[in-house]
Amino acid sequence: MRKKISRRDFVRIGTQSVVGGIVLYTIPALFADFTTATANSSSYDWEKHYWGFVCDNEKCIGCGRCVVACKLENKVPWEPEYNRTWVERYVITEEGETFVDSPNAGRDGFKTEQPHPNVLKSFFVPKLCNQCDNPPCVTVCPVGATYMTEDGVILIDQEHCIGCGYCLQACPYGARFFLPDKRVVDKCNWCYHRISKGILPACVEACPVKARVFGDLWDPESPVAKTLAAKRVYVLKPDLGTEPKVYYIGFEKGVH
């Protein structure tokens, strides 16, 4: 025969086991190691570098090899909607109007002229993530999935990203986009897998006219530091206070 159990005992045992179960389940989480940083496997010391980038609008020929190299290097979808870097063409007319276009993000080069008469000046502007020192995208991320590393590059933890898209709205440079298959955000990280091995980003390697310069801002002998010392540079949308680390040569009003 089954042992009869009183209602009082049932409630008591039930409560005890539930509370006990919760306590037992909670204990390991409370004492979990809060500093499970994985050991630094490579010899790269990220506290010894601070990366910077220079784009020279006066040299850029708009061939779009950087866009192609970036897509192949970083497995960015080939469609022109998804770009870690792209090239824009600016046409300023004698009437003072500015026209900007970027057919296929510059991936296939620029085949035809813009149909505007009376062109005062025209030039190409390469665009990529500015790796801001004061990044609005990091500020708005509700889950802390995007962050700045010690060497000044903004990375995205795509396992952690919930795809809410706040950072796409927050970035004033339009550097971020959704990966179509993963539904998480992606953007240029200056080829972090290359620069952390001491190799130039793919777009810098690909540029045939050296319109893209990359290097260590803390090393006075680096190409970037030398360029910054020798040339007058400006950044995009300086009034926003984002403090970009992509510097441009060839200032022109209306480029942003």
């Binding site: 940083a37 994985t38 802390g144 962050y147 952690h160």
Partner: peptide, 10 residues
Amino acid sequence: HQRNSEENRQ
């Protein structure tokens, strides 16, 4: 609400 940034950086 924090990811392990060191792991992700690696």
